[in-house]
């Protein structure tokens, strides 16, 4: 048993070491892409906590938006450090998750209906941010007051700092994913995803299990949103909340594979590196070409590879010994 655990952990340690040396050997540009992949990968992982148990939320744009806006707003208008602002934003997202989640689960709003209710939620967040343009800057977005390198303000113009933060946060996200995957709640959640009525009949507290995973997912998503705004030093309602972002989160998690720990991150790699590569290879002459190919690939992914990139790789690996 111990030996088995060692064999699983050894490659992880190697990989962590490999990721840790990245800032010493690459350019700022590569680092910029890597930070985005890690932070978005963290958000996608947070979404997949719910997604893999059949709770397909299109409302994560709302949680992301709250996380991204609350801390810069408190910093700009009250001078409150992000060390307090970010937890406040996360708490607000959790509160919203409870307000929406509790009635949804109590009244058994599932499937299409759950997706569409949460879709409305993300639209409410987007429109509220736009409507409060006096303080949020509306569609033009806003910039947290910059003070240069500062731990107090959590602002680091040098990329390696943020890379380190993003890496730690991402590892934390993977850890939470494993915790949920190995915990006792997993069997219960699987049973609920399979048949909610039957799960309740054998004594599973459907409500509690669903709320727990929803709260965890919302909190991590808001945390990811806060870090994205700290890194970019700019928040914009269209890139951090609303239906577009919600769909982006869902697609990335599904394209990567939401049933494996590294799937959503692979989705992040795919959704951030691919447009970047397409943009570089095609130039900016064809605005939209990269996104068109990206959109077509998404549809193809969902039709032919519903378990995502990592899901396909795992199936290949699992099938390989059988062939010998």
């Amino acid at each position: 048993m111990m030996h088995e655990a060692n064999r699983r952990i050894a490659p992880l340690i190697l990989a962590a070491f490999g990721l840790a040396v990245v800032p010493f050997v690459t350019s700022d540009y590569v680092l910029h892409i890597a930070i985005q992949i890690l932070l978005w990968g963290f958000v996608y992982t947070a979404w997949s906590l719910m997604g893999k148990f059949g709770l397909v939320s299109l409302g994560h744009g709302a949680f992301l938006g709250i996380g991204a806006y609350v801390s810069p707003l408190l910093w700009n208008y009250a001078g409150l450090t992000p060390w307090l602002g970010i937890p406040i934003g996360v708490l607000m997202a959790v509160l919203l998750a409870l307000i929406i989640g509790y009635p949804c689960f109590r009244l058994r709003v599932i499937g299409h209906y759950f997706a569409l209710v949460t879709l409305a939620l993300s639209q409410v967040a987007l429109l509220t941010i736009v409507a409060a343009r006096d303080i949020t800057g509306g569609s033009l977005g806003m910039t947290p007051r910059a003070v240069g390198h500062s731990w107090y303000a959590l602002q680091f113009p040098e990329k390696p700092y943020f890379y380190a933060i993003a890496l730690v946060v991402w590892v934390f996200g993977i850890g939470v994913w494993h915790f949920v995957d190995l915990g006792t709640g997993r069997a219960a959640l699987d049973a609920i995803a399979e048949d909610e009525g039957a799960a309740a009949a054998i004594g599973i507290n459907v409500m509690r299990e669903k709320l727990r995973v929803t709260v965890a997912s919302a909190a991590l998503t808001a945390f990811g949103g806060a870090l994205l705004s700290q890194y970019f030093m700019y928040v914009n309602p269209d890139t951090l909340s609303g239906i577009g972002v919600s769909l982006q989160i869902v697609f990335a998690a599904i394209a990567g594979g939401m049933y494996s720990a590294f799937g959503p991150t692979a989705g992040g790699l795919f959704t951030i590196a691919l447009p970047e590569i397409l943009r570089i290879s095609m130039g900016t002459n064809f605005v939209g070409a990269a996104n068109t190919i990206y959109g077509a690939l998404l549809v193809i992914f969902i039709i032919f590879m519903p378990r995502g990139i990592i899901g396909l790789v795992e199936r290949r690996l699992a099938a390989a010994p059988a062939r010998i």
Binding site: V287, N291, T292, Y294, G295
Partner: peptide, 15 residues
Amino acid sequence: ATGGMLFFLQSLATL
């Protein structure tokens, strides 16, 4: 899948 088409059609129109 139809959500992916949303993305595709939007980007195609932009292109």
